[in-house]
Simulated assay, not measured.
Amino acid sequence: MFSFLRPNAGPACPPVAEIAAAVARGEMVLVDVRETAELRGSGKAKGALHVPLGLLALKADPQAPDAVMAPGKPVVLYCASGGRSGMAAQTLRRMGYDPVWNLGGFGDWVAGGGQVDRA
Score class of each variant (00 low, 15 high):
M1G: 15
F2W: 12
R6C: 12
P7S: 06
P7I: 03
G10E: 06
P11H: 10
P11A: 15
C13A: 05
P14S: 07
P15T: 13
V16T: 10
I19K: 00
A21I: 00
A24R: 15
A24G: 04
E27H: 08
V29R: 11
V29K: 09
L30A: 03
L30M: 04
L30P: 09
V31H: 03
D32T: 02
V33S: 04
R34V: 00
E35N: 10
E35C: 06
T36L: 14
T36R: 14
E38D: 02
L39Q: 02
L39P: 01
R40I: 09
R40A: 13
K44H: 15
K44L: 15
K46A: 15
L49T: 06
H50K: 02
H50L: 09
V51P: 06
V51N: 00
P52W: 02
L55W: 10
L56A: 08
L58W: 10
K59M: 10
D61K: 00
P65K: 11
D66H: 08
A67M: 04
A67H: 14
A67G: 05
V68T: 14
V68Q: 15
M69D: 00
A70Q: 11
Y78I: 05
A80Y: 08
G83V: 15
G83W: 11
R84I: 07
S85P: 03
A88S: 11
Q90T: 14
T91G: 07
L92D: 07
L92Q: 04
G96R: 02
D98C: 06
D98L: 03
P99E: 08
V100H: 08
W101E: 10
G104F: 01
G104M: 05
G105M: 08
F106Q: 04
F106A: 04
D108K: 12
W109S: 02
W109M: 08
V110Q: 12
A111T: 14
G112C: 13
V116K: 09
V116P: 07
D117K: 13
R118G: 13
